[in-house]
Design a binder for these strands. Structure first.
Lengths: 349, 349
DNA sequence: TCAGCTTCTCGAAACGTTTCGATCGCTAAG
DNA sequence: CTTAGCGATCGAAACGTTTCGAGAAGCTGA
């Protein structure tokens, strides 16, 4: 009871190996009649080509590598995880599988992902901030690369990026529109292009409005604990903000914890808005306003672009900016208006 | 500038293909001197065997399949995702890659995962509740299988399970210990073995304590929205609970939203505890007590067991029950004691 | 009529490994 | 002194595809 091979199909259909192969791959010239007969045998035998054999002969693996730093991977905040899931989902449509691997975080030595050594991937997705050395190293294996949520200035790589500037504009304009005037920025890890862009966006709108900047970017990471410290920093200066735009939701969460601990009321005394729109936003009390980032969508686009690069052999560099969306929840409600019962289950997605 | 093959290593070292292969796979009899020489050439050339060729010749893929229903996959609650990440992490230690695929949820027709058709995996991990037909179908491909967080009564499969009963005992005993007396159970999807066991555990402790059962299991799913309805149901009966044990955190979250909306104070009027200990618990207000499930650990164990089965060719059925842990937060604080400022950043992990 | 396409099919050569005997010299057991 | 067994190495045969080049047959236009 062995599995049928392409030989069996050839023998039973009366055609040669090569012709069967052409039919299976839907390539070259094959008469309709021949195709029909061969497919009939394929169906009857339940034949399906074997990946390894196909890979060996055609020098393709049918896999795509996904590289993530250990930091991002182990982070509780499921941001990159969502992007990864998006790639997983989309890759099915192109008959690829995703091989995930983590690499030591920025600064450490480079460890070559095994899937590159084994020629086990046809292209690579790199998500988040990684060392440039690593990117160049991956490149040296001659596979197409696409970056997600990261950019390299010196050299142009295809990338899928968040429209951070637009998002920051939305957030800050929203805070201004609700009547706030002293608007702070809760930042950290300012080296990350995404964070830097959010800060720029903030600055642009603040400048335009004639208000004063109120910025904290001393923290080196953008986790919840850093948000706590950053908010503390911001709160104990001369000017107290009546609204804060956080570089991401994790920081906003930490910031909210600090404010609650101080007995500051949200949104009555201070409005708060984050960035990313992670799931947690909805269950917080008050629910956290945020800039929605379509994380799964970013993963999907990355796969589409990468498959383009793999199949078309094109070397064109394509940068895609994925739009964002303002999601208003109770944490940034206008001061005057009744906010509604806190903790009410939000109807928005 | 081609990559070196095993041929190159053989030629340059002066030994045969077979001997080089033996050295690379660390198998069979090779003298220390020969090994040294060959490894020297391997190092010098930067040789690394190609997966496809190896796979073809040895009939192994070096991959492990991970099957998840679409429901579980797209669920916001990152429970199975964490298990998946655990498998990802552990698989590196065994030089395997994980291929994730989703299947239509229970009830639909069976769609054979492509990695099985292509002989692209050496074993399969199935997570969560799936149809028995699917399991049998996967089995028919002759690869080892391990279930995670699911059991089949009729037939014994190796499985990695949560110690749900013990968890339920911990939760309910904890509620009793804090002075609560009318303890409710917020359930749903009672067909799921894990949920059923949590209910059983609840019942056992309640019976032992001489109190009365107060159970809602009408809901068919265990999402947040169902928790909202189930709590509503429980709340509007004759006896009002002063503590509730929810079948999982998602339901507890929904329940909490309902209670807040009613103006019920937590934990003063009612204590609440969930199950799973998802990340969200910590940022809720009040932070939600829960039974911690070591999700990544479950994934790791699954990989270890599966690799055992793949390499040792053993057919022994091994069931592992992963212990759980009680995590007390403000939502289940005793009535008398001062709870501390709400929303205070919890120091526990 | 003939050269030059196009359509269709096939044989054979890769692709880069593992694995299965076979051989050979040496040592230990009988 | 045999003989069995082990350590070390090798040649050759898989493993199951894709791909390349060639050839036959039919059609088209000059």
């Amino acid at each position: 009871m062995k599995r049928p091979t392409i030989d069996d199909v050839a023998r039973q259909s009366g055609f040669s190996l090569s012709t069967v192969s052409l039919v299976i791959n839907d390539r070259g010239y094959v008469s309709a009649e021949t195709r029909r007969k061969i497919l009939e045998v394929v169906g009857r035998l339940g034949y399906h080509p074997t990946r390894s054999a196909r890979g060996l002969a055609s020098r393709t693996s049918g896999n795509v590598g996904f590289i993530l730093t250990e930091d991002h991977f182990s982070q509780a905040e499921p941001f990159y995880t969502r992007i990864f899931l998006g790639t997983e989902f989309e890759s099915r449509n192109f008959h690829y599988y995703i091989l995930l691997t983590t690499v030591p975080s920025v600064g450490s030595h480079i460890e070559t992902p095994r899937f590159l050594l084994e020629r086990h991937v046809d292209g690579v997705i790199i998500a988040g901030k990684v060392s440039h050395k690593l990117i160049e190293h991956v490149e040296s294996f001659g596979v197409p690369i696409i970056l997600v949520d990261y950019e390299v200035k010196r050299r142009r790589y295809s990338a899928v990026l968040i429209d951070n500037r637009a998002g920051a504009h939305l957030a800050v304009r929203h805070l201004l529109a609700t009547g706030r005037s002293a608007i702070g920025f809760l930042g950290g890890d300012i080296d990350h292009p995404s964070i830097a862009e959010r800060l720029e966006g903030y600055r642009e709108v603040i400048a335009e409005s004639g208000k004063e900047e109120l910025i904290s970017t001393a923290e080196t990471e953008t986790r919840s604990a850093n948000g706590f410290s950053a908010m503390q920093d911001l709160w104990n200066r001369g000017v107290r903000p009546d609204a804060v735009f956080a570089a991401n939701d994790a920081m906003a969460i930490g910031g909210m914890q600090f404010l609650k601990q101080q007995g500051v009321r949200i949104p009555e005394d201070i409005a708060l808005i984050g960035f990313d729109d992670i799931d947690t936003c909805r269950v917080m009390d008050p629910p956290l306003s945020s800039i929605r980032v379509f994380k799964e969508e970013m993963g999907r686009i990355a796969v589409q672009r990468l498959v383009d690069m793999i199949t078309a052999k094109t070397t064109t560099v394509v940068t895609t900016h994925v739009p964002v969306e303002l999601v208003v929840r109770a944490s940034s409600a206008p001061i005057e208006v009744d906010v509604g019962a806190p903790g009410q289950p939000s109807l928005q997605a």
